[in-house]
Amino acid sequence: MPRYKILVEYDGTDYYGWQRQPEGPTVEGEIEDALSTILREPIDIKGQGRTDSGVHAEAQVAHFDYPGELDSHRITYALLGVLPKDISVYSLEQVRDDFHARFDAKSRRYRFQIVTRPSPLLHRQAQMVLNELDLEAMLACAESILGIHDFESFTKSGPEQERTKCDIMFSEFEVRQHMIIYHIQANRFLRHLVRRLVGTMIQVGKGRKSVDEFLDILKNPTDKEGGHGAQAKGLILEKVGY
């Protein structure tokens, strides 16, 4: 059966994450319902991974099967009129029949946005931190996680996360006027990993933890979750590499 790959951008503020669930609206659920309405048969999409409640994406990747040839322009245009305005499927293409959005992915890239003054335009996509931050100390923390590490202390434990090692390929802070942006790329991510890394780095930047304390949490993994969480609204999935 023909397989189609989609790219999705969304503001996750009003959703219970990506994955369909009974508690409330999800991004996956909205897209499945919209495609099922347009194509007039049930559509089941598979995402490259989950994003939590309140997390955003610029290029979430998913795939679905459909027994027929689809006109990419027609379908993406039709979705404009069916999907909520905070979700957009902006690319649709046919891929090989064995392509898998999750299992074929080689890397994921996220950014976390911090604003250092009140910013109404970024209120839904950034965490506000008014404290003076020690950026040099935060950079030292960011550099320390490069490579393969066991991040058990920085994740939400659960039976689905038996493997807690990740290979961090890129980890860096960038300053733009009244914004501090953290960029990270890895082969895989654990649940809440980026938010707990950033949250703990912010604590270091505020002087509430030292770089050595951050390194101690990193080098001595434990299921007691030693990391400090940042707000979901600051996190944005930027790209999935294949």
Rank of each mutant, 00 (worst) to 15 (best):
K219G: 08
R111N: 15
F99A: 08
Q177P: 00
E162S: 03
Y182E: 06
A57K: 06
E136R: 14
T13G: 07
T155S: 09
A232W: 09
Y110D: 09
M128T: 11
I114Q: 04
K5M: 12
D167N: 15
I38N: 07
I180L: 15
E69K: 11
Y66K: 02
I31E: 01
P84K: 02
Q94S: 12
F64C: 04
V240C: 01
P118E: 12
D167S: 10
E162Q: 12
A59Y: 03
I168K: 05
K46G: 03
Y90I: 07
D212W: 04
V89D: 07
H178N: 13
F151D: 10
F189H: 06
A57Y: 10
G229H: 02
H73T: 15
F154H: 01
I180N: 05
P2G: 03
G226D: 06
D86Q: 01
L237G: 07
E160M: 13
Y4C: 06
E172M: 11
K206G: 02
L215I: 08
H149N: 14
G17R: 02
A140C: 04
I217E: 02
Q19Y: 04
G229C: 13
G227F: 03
L215D: 06
H63E: 08
L133P: 04
D65P: 07
L235C: 11
E28A: 15
Q161C: 00
F154W: 04
Q113Y: 05
G158T: 03
E58V: 10
V194R: 01
S171A: 11
H228C: 09
N187G: 15
P221E: 05
L122D: 12
N131C: 05
R195T: 03
Y77E: 13
K239S: 12
D97Y: 03
L35N: 11
R108Y: 08
T164V: 07
D97E: 14
L121I: 08
N187K: 09
T116E: 11
L39M: 08
E143C: 02
Y16S: 13
S72I: 06
N187P: 04
E93I: 13
N131D: 15
N131P: 01
T51R: 02
D167I: 06
S91E: 14
F99D: 02
N131V: 01
Y77Q: 15
E238V: 14
H123E: 13
R96L: 06
L218H: 03
G29K: 05
V240D: 00
F214T: 00
N220C: 10
H63R: 02
S91Y: 12
R188G: 00
V95F: 05
P84D: 06
D52I: 02
E172F: 09
P120H: 08
I45G: 07
Q161Y: 13
A232V: 04
P221T: 01
P118C: 09
A230I: 06
E172P: 04
R191S: 00
S119T: 14
Q231F: 12
V82D: 02
